[in-house]
């Protein structure tokens, strides 16, 4: 179950020749065709691609939310592929954090209770120093007693980020975290995510279709038709946009 130590140990998440096929026969859809990728520790990686490129599927498979048809997925030293429900639950509890497009806060709980929910589910106590750091970083100290309905979209998403961070997971998967936010709130959230990578060494994998958002990442990988087609290190909004444009005309894409 554990991978060998060495260069691979540096990867927080890894996909190895991952195939994902939905349905069968006529209705068969191949979402991923042999994707192999590594997501280094302490880096902010964005996955981009047009609609239907398989970027969300890749993230779901990496996070153990969806099973793969072929190939293997690993988070840190744990091979995700083949884990049973109990194993997957433990994985989600200890190694993975999520940030969703829809924020997905429990409407009945206060901001503070939402942030601490993963820990209380796991029956753990928060590290008070780290908890304070997270709260200060997201800047929600005066809002902790509020319900989600009393918070703005940006604030809700920052609560969601704090919820993902507070458990110090191996990797945080963010699914279009700015998709439901205006550009100012979006920028706030992205800055905050980047800071948590830079300052606290958090690993983040983010799916987005917004080039501006992707520009906050250290690295962008591009998916089209279920395959990785390109990659950018230290991207800017312009380079991302250029690459995206090329993807729209598949003939020009270099394999």
């Amino acid at each position: 179950m554990t991978a060998t130590v060495g260069r691979q140990a540096q990867a927080a998440a890894r996909a190895n020749d991952v195939w994902k096929v939905y349905g069968s026969g006529e209705a068969q859809v191949v979402a991923l065709r042999g994707v192999s990728a590594e997501f280094e520790r302490g880096r902010f990686t964005a996955i981009m691609g047009p609609s239907g490129s398989g970027k969300s599927t890749l993230m779901h498979c990496l996070a153990g939310l969806d099973s793969v048809t072929r190939g293997t997925v690993a988070i840190g030293e744990t091979t995700v592929t083949g884990l049973n429900d109990a194993g997957l639950t433990k994985l989600r509890r200890d190694k993975v954090g999520f940030i969703f497009q829809q924020f997905n806060l429990l409407p009945t709980l206060t901001a503070q209770e939402n942030i601490l929910l993963p820990l209380s589910i796991a029956g753990r106590k928060p590290d008070p120093a780290w908890y304070d750091t997270v709260i200060d970083t997201v800047g929600l100290r005066d809002r902790l007693g509020h319900r989600p309905s009393q918070l703005s979209g940006g604030q809700q998403q920052r609560v969601a980020c704090a919820r993902a961070l507070v458990a110090r997971p191996e990797v945080i998967f963010a699914d279009e975290p700015t998709g439901n936010l205006d550009s100012r709130s979006g920028a706030e959230v992205l800055n905050f995510l980047r800071n948590s990578v830079r300052e606290h060494g958090q690993t983040i994998v983010m799916v987005t279709h917004d080039p501006t958002a992707a520009a906050y990442a250290d690295r962008v990988i591009f998916l089209a038709d279920g395959q990785i087609v390109s990659e950018l290190i230290e991207p800017t909004a312009d380079t991302v946009l250029d690459t995206m444009k090329k993807l729209d005309t598949p003939a020009e894409v270099a394999r």
């Binding site: 939310l65 429900d85 109990a86 639950t89 989600r92 509890r93 200890d94 954090g97 999520f98 969703f100 997905n104 429990l106 929910l117 993963p118 589910i121 796991a122 919820r163 458990a167």
Partner: peptide
């Protein structure tokens, strides 16, 4: 969501 953030069945 509870399941996603680590709650067991």
């Amino acid at each position: 969501l509870m399941r996603a953030i680590g709650a067991s069945g």
